[in-house]
């Protein structure tokens, strides 16, 4: 089985979000980048397929050279090879098109992406990719087993979960549950050394026209101070929720 794991390179979850150039660009100043958390679960699940079922695992990112340390981290965790498509990711559809090209040329059976990226939050790339390449698609995936070309997956739904049967070729939108938090792997020294020797191929992009563009950014209006209510005066909270906030 040939697996491709899509890696989105995103600001660390603790990052302060600011903008520059008249609020048209994300301010990368002082921001630490990480593997998108949803992709990290998928990457670890892919490692298990590699170790238990002899799969090969490549990782891919669509982005500029600045994303390479993130791809190297994925190699250090255990991926066999990395691919970077050399174009800035500005639109989900354009990214999906670039990934479709990589999947088709690479002959991958299974693509593991994340449910959503924590920077763009589009929740669109994996579904678009699946449709473009004519593969099956399961998102919000919290469990995945593959036997031959058959797949069984569990998907989180509003208020519960459902078990589905499908087959390869398959694209997954993964999240926590695919593996547990405690199963996530941190690169060790040996992994980091080995990662240096693993191939990281830079591909030139195919020609794609973006469908959307973020023209400017805003930050939420600053919040007023919290109104504290005394623990002995809970009637006051009920009153405020009813008469002031009007939520009950």
């Amino acid at each position: 089985m040939k697996i491709l794991v899509c890696i989105s390179h995103v600001p660390d979850t603790t990052s302060k979000i600011n903008f520059t150039d008249g609020d048209t660009k994300f301010d990368t100043n002082g921001v630490q980048y990480v593997i998108n958390p949803n992709d990290e679960f998928g990457l670890t699940r892919a490692m298990w397929f590699k170790e238990k079922q002899g799969a090969s695992v490549d990782v891919v990112n669509v982005g500029g050279a600045e994303t390479e340390p993130t791809l190297r981290k994925a190699l250090a965790i255990g991926a066999d090879a990395a691919i970077r498509v050399n174009i800035e990711a500005t639109d989900g559809f354009a990214v999906a098109k670039q990934l479709a090209n990589v999947v088709q040329n690479g002959g991958y059976d299974l693509v593991i992406a994340g449910r959503e990226s924590i920077d763009y939050n589009g929740a669109m790339v994996p579904g678009m990719l699946a449709t473009l390449i004519g593969a099956n698609f399961v998102t919000n995936c919290i469990s995945l087993e593959i036997e031959g070309t058959s797949a069984k997956a569990v998907r989180e739904i509003d208020g519960g979960k459902e078990t589905v049967n499908t087959s390869l070729p398959l694209v997954i939108g993964g999240q926590k549950g695919l593996v547990e938090e405690s199963d996530l792997r941190i690169p060790n020294m040996r992994g980091i050394m080995m990662a240096r020797k693993k191939p990281l191929t830079v591909l030139e992009p195919v020609n794609v026209i973006a469908e959307t563009k973020a023209v400017s950014y805003e930050k939420p209006a600053p919040k007023g101070a919290v109104k504290l209510v005394d623990a002995d005066n809970i009637d006051e909270l009920v009153n405020l929720l009813h008469n002031e906030a009007k939520v009950i």
Partner: peptide, 23 residues
Amino acid sequence: SSADSKYLAPLLAVGLEAGYVSN
């Protein structure tokens, strides 16, 4: 923005060649 609607939207977007914006 339910889980189901978010699941189908990207498929619909490709089918209709429509640009999709979520959230």
